[in-house]
Design a protein around this nucleic acid. Structure first.
Lengths: 332, 332
DNA sequence: ATTTATAATGAAAGTGTTTTCATTATCGGA
DNA sequence: TCCGATAATGAAAACACTTTCATTATAAAT
């Protein structure tokens, strides 16, 4: 039964059921202009021969692949995995396939990715990658590829964007803290930082300048191990502070280093993780964070792209609101 | 400059450079049978017109898509994200694109996925999903799709597999523990468990039976929150034990529940995470685990598949060795 | 200069579909 | 029973390439 079978083509189905290619194509695509009788007949031979239409040939003929490209810096971040999760769910629901394009945080790779996306004939793409700048995005757009861009305000035909309100929220959190708290705040700047992080940092600095407060910035590497080591050093001299970290693994590095240095969290050291994943409640003390449903961001991005693809929606900008969730790593 | 351009086809390039389609095709594909002069000429007009070959048409003509399918239960697990990371790197190196197929741990979806993989015309696929059984795999194989299957011993033409030695290692860890330790061991069985986990459980039970030792099994849900809640209950009566958890988030649930119940880790409660990710060292106390370089598993799977695709390699089975890493959550 | 071997090129068929347009069949109404 | 309208069907072109095979150009050798 399970012998190797060569792929059955529409032609063989046509011959076997005594109709033309056109008719078989019609029954495959549920075109109504087919008699019930011939439809039955064709469907029967399709089942008998085990025919499956070639999506490749369909794509070439219709200029639609039902593939959407996902551009990300890496699959390895938990928050990106969360988004991917939402994307795969929604894509499955809508009958799209996801093709991954990763830039590895390298500009060179990013350029390559742009080329690949163009030649791949995806129906559209979702971009969550700071390595792609406006020029890259315009290039993709110029090839008429509908785009949903996350974390970059873009405008144009068949271009939608999703943005997070982290900048605003960080400012609010800081201003709240100024009222009740007294520790000096430090921002953890990543060596290889992207636009979003830079905007957040700017927001952090602005809030301090406006309030006439003193602040600090530490530039760290995007690695738990290294950040932990760095802070074991830092905590030899710095005995208190409120630290803003981009991701929970980095926040955890600060917490663990503080505790291992004999400091108390949150009494001496307070830590806020900006992007919180499920680990915020696993790490002890539990991490205060800005909560954003990244899975929903993922599924929404697919929904928006689907809108662009079906022309229901020409352009749209959406802002996702994050909420500050106080847990045990901060006092307020 | 950045006007909308319609896709340039090979035909236009041919006309514009005064040669035939065949010649253009030859320069695209670096075929040696082209004069340097014509090559230059064609390359120049390719650059000028901004021509990019359609991978779709190429795929149809050559019956090669340079796409490989990745079948996983979900993109949301950290250990799968690690693997994906290795896959994307290696795939980029070798010029393959990755298309994601997720089963969501549902048999129904798995059947759908099998169909989609077949009609998607991927050059091959990597399967890391217990939801696909031998029948599904044989079906894919019968469509001549080269396969690398992770965690399922399979045999056949253009079928390779990668397996982990968790069963053996767990047995060793247990036997070692019998020599020095004294706590009763408990296995954390997942409600929706897969083949791998079941094999590990069997290994766990076998080791106990062989040694004439008593053991326990708790059936839990695959969720940190629920497992934490469950163990807050369990630790009301059970005041000590050695717990084997599948993933580090589950192990963390046990640890946190133990500590929050006033028990000491590892003095009262010992915990071993089978699949450890980077969180093993973030969680406190740090988690003892079986270490396996999942990123390397990912890249190796792509390498093996590439071998099958180029016919360098007809069949292969590989076993990855894990190593027991003692950290602070166990005594030995 | 002529022949041969070889390299470069082009014409055309093939890849597996969809879709347009023309043709044929079917049905209802007079 | 015949006509007209409409529904069902098929032929063929289109999609954007690759590849085989035949043909022409080029270089080497005599």
């Amino acid at each position: 039964m399970n012998n190797m079978k060569d792929r059955v083509t529409i032609y063989e189905v046509a011959v076997a059921s005594g109709v033309s290619l056109a008719t078989v194509s019609r029954v495959i695509n549920n075109n109504s202009n087919v008699t019930e009788k011939t439809r039955k007949k064709v469907e029967e031979t399709i089942a008998r021969l085990g025919y499956k239409p070639s999506r490749l040939a369909q794509a070439l003929a219709t200029n639609k692949t039902t593939n959407i490209g996902i551009v990300i810096p890496s699959a390895n971040y938990v928050y990106i995995a969360n988004m991917l999760n939402g994307m795969t769910d929604e894509a499955k629901l809508r009958g799209y396939q996801l093709t991954l394009f990763v830039t590895n945080k390298s500009k060179e790779d990013a350029l390559q990715v742009v080329e690949k996306v163009i030649t791949s004939h995806v129906d559209g793409a979702i971009i969550f990658d700071d390595e792609l700048d406006n020029e890259d995005i315009n290039k993709l757009a110029s090839y008429k590829i509908p785009l949903v861009v996350i974390n970059n305000q873009v405008k144009g035909d068949r271009l939608a964007s999703i943005n997070f309100d982290y900048e605003k929220k960080i400012k609010e959190v800081i201003q709240q803290y100024f009222k009740k708290g007294s520790k000096k705040m430090y921002f953890l700047h990543l060596h290889h930082s992207g636009r979003l992080l830079e905007r957040i940092e700017k927001s952090f600095i602005d809030a301090h300048i406006k309030a006439g407060k003193n602040y600090g910035v530490f530039s760290i590497e995007d690695s738990y191990r290294q950040t932990y080591a760095d802070f074991m050093e830092i905590f030899k001299s710095t005995k208190s502070g409120y630290f803003l970290a981009y991701r929970d693994s980095l926040a955890a590095a600060v917490i663990n280093a503080a505790i291992d240095s004999g400091l108390r969290v949150p009494q001496d050291v307070e830590v806020l993780s900006i992007i919180g994943t499920k680990y915020v409640s696993i790490i002890r003390p539990q991490l205060s964070s800005l909560h954003l449903d990244l899975k929903e961001v993922g599924s929404t991005s697919v929904t928006m792209l689907a809108g662009l693809l079906t022309d229901e929606q020409k352009e749209k900008n959406l802002e996702f609101e994050s909420t500050f969730v106080k847990r045990a790593s901060t006092l307020f």
